[in-house]
Design a protein around this nucleic acid. Sequence first.
DNA 1: TTAATTAGTGAAAGCGTTTGCGCATCACTC
DNA 2: GAGTGATGCGCAAACGCTTTCACTAATTAA
Lengths: 337, 337
Amino acid sequence: MKSNIKDVAKLAGVSPSTVSRVIHNNTRISENTKIRVREAMEELGYIPNAAASSLAGHTPKTLGLVLPNNPGELFKNPFFINAMRGISVYAQQQGYFLLYSFSSDEEDEIQFIRNYINSGWISGVVLLTARKNDRCVEYLRQSEFPFVLIGHAEDPINTNWVDNDNFQAMYQVVNYLIEKGHRKIGFVGGPETFRVTQDRYNGYLQALNSRGFVPDEELIFMGDDFSEGSGIKGAEKILKNTLPDAIATTDDQLAFGVLGFLEANRIEGLAVTGFNNTVRSMYQKPTLTSVDINPELLGERAAELLINLLESDKSKRKDIVPNHYLVPAKLIPRETA
Amino acid sequence: MKSNIKDVAKLAGVSPSTVSRVIHNNTRISENTKIRVREAMEELGYIPNAAASSLAGHTPKTLGLVLPNNPGELFKNPFFINAMRGISVYAQQQGYFLLYSFSSDEEDEIQFIRNYINSGWISGVVLLTARKNDRCVEYLRQSEFPFVLIGHAEDPINTNWVDNDNFQAMYQVVNYLIEKGHRKIGFVGGPETFRVTQDRYNGYLQALNSRGFVPDEELIFMGDDFSEGSGIKGAEKILKNTLPDAIATTDDQLAFGVLGFLEANRIEGLAVTGFNNTVRSMYQKPTLTSVDINPELLGERAAELLINLLESDKSKRKDIVPNHYLVPAKLIPRETA
DNA sequence: TTAATTAGTGAAAGCGTTTGCGCATCACTC
DNA sequence: GAGTGATGCGCAAACGCTTTCACTAATTAA
């Protein structure tokens, strides 16, 4: 049942080297031989032993994913599972296997990456979560191990990454609100230090600007985190002195906080938008207008980028273009806007 | 930076074989030597090359997961991501890597399993989705490749599996409803051919029975699938002639269908329960009483079972006990009951 | 015509481990 | 003091593949 390269070689009447070359589509093998060998492989149901292949110096067709182990987030937001699906779509199609690991902290992650790399199992890493001063990124870079980041890279020039166009996404949201007739539009963001917050904030400003609106300091709030609690605080601040038409937030959780505050204080008629298109946003009452950041496509692109990199000539990997993709996000209008 | 077993051997003043034996905790090595070797490994940051190890005959410490690629299901129900987390908790702790693949059909799955097995990458498989007449199970069994199934096994004696105690879970639900004062309790299940439907149905019957209630044929419906549509049909049938106090369903989707029908027909006061504790169940209005089937623990147990199997003496694997786990499910009372 | 090149293939070394076998050494036993 | 059985370790042969080098035959260039 289980056959190896020698069996195939014998059946095809060639040497193992030739079989190996056929597998890797070496141009030096004649078409005739290739056909013979392929028939033999077919007949024996031969599948190359990846471990041996890796040992012998051929980089293994396996990617390693690093996932954060945050039960709450994982539960409420199907981002990760969908990103994984996206990655798998492209990777499997290209004959790559996928390794994954959940890690609870940065230390953990580095440990895994170390193991990944040294084990000889994998040839590239996908980081599904971008942090500030990410030590994983640093480690991977200094190990000169190929990787791609989903999310914002701190050093976008020297990193391979895919991300949403967050500026454009929020621009789109605010534009939509304006077209719906809203004039005084508030903003509730996550921590200011996060690039994603900045980008979305800038999209907000730019959208207002392009319509000749002037941003009002009182309508803008940046939370300490992305939680519902911060959303509540945001609503509190914004509604203290003025009453806006709408509040755009950078995260569904924040939006839920805002909605909660509105409900608790019986304030009606405000439009509210979120980000991430979580399951809750589609089912709670009122359903929340949100932005689908397209996690599956993010994953797919990430895999594509990484695999292109891996299959390119090793010596000139640094010159590979593109080193990033911007994935469009899509506004999903629902009851809250 | 990257060291191999020879480097360690040299530094420790022993032969590579000794280092290998230390790694695998061979009893024939003296404590002194072990300590010396371990220090050397530490100093060099040595991590064994898993590919080489696998090649040399040591079964690799990697498990392969087979996931269905059903976007809708994956999205609405965090079962899989949580099961994956559970698996990873145990597996990573035991030093195992995890490979995963999404497959869109059975053909696909078999293909992956074939690749998995022959590639030499993995030593065991976790099937996250149980089907009737599962050809994957068949294939794995005939290949004599270790695997564990999450869900109901068709041949429970000769399969390693973990599952909820579905009988007990539904018994608990109905019992709860009865204690809440409900007397006429309907049942909406999935396809009758599914074991899970049978088990939960039996739990329902038994619970009624134990309280001296007689099941009423008119209050019982088995759908063609687990969809919202089937839930609607179920409610339609059950409410045709009689008006029950409560309807217990075997799936949140079915429950949503029932609730939808009730709302559309302005029928109030009925208790409704689901299964799976989906995100929607916690956030829609009214929030749905559901059963948390504890996917994380299912995953953890599955990994435990499989790894125990793998680490046991190969010759007497068949006698390993337990070959299954029953994971308790937990009723989550919410507004609908 | 001869030399140089190219195409197509095989032989063999090596990748980093594991492991069966064997060789010492040591502690007992009779 | 010879025999026995542990104990502790090294040697060397795999494991299945890739790849360099070398070789032959066929083609092209000079």
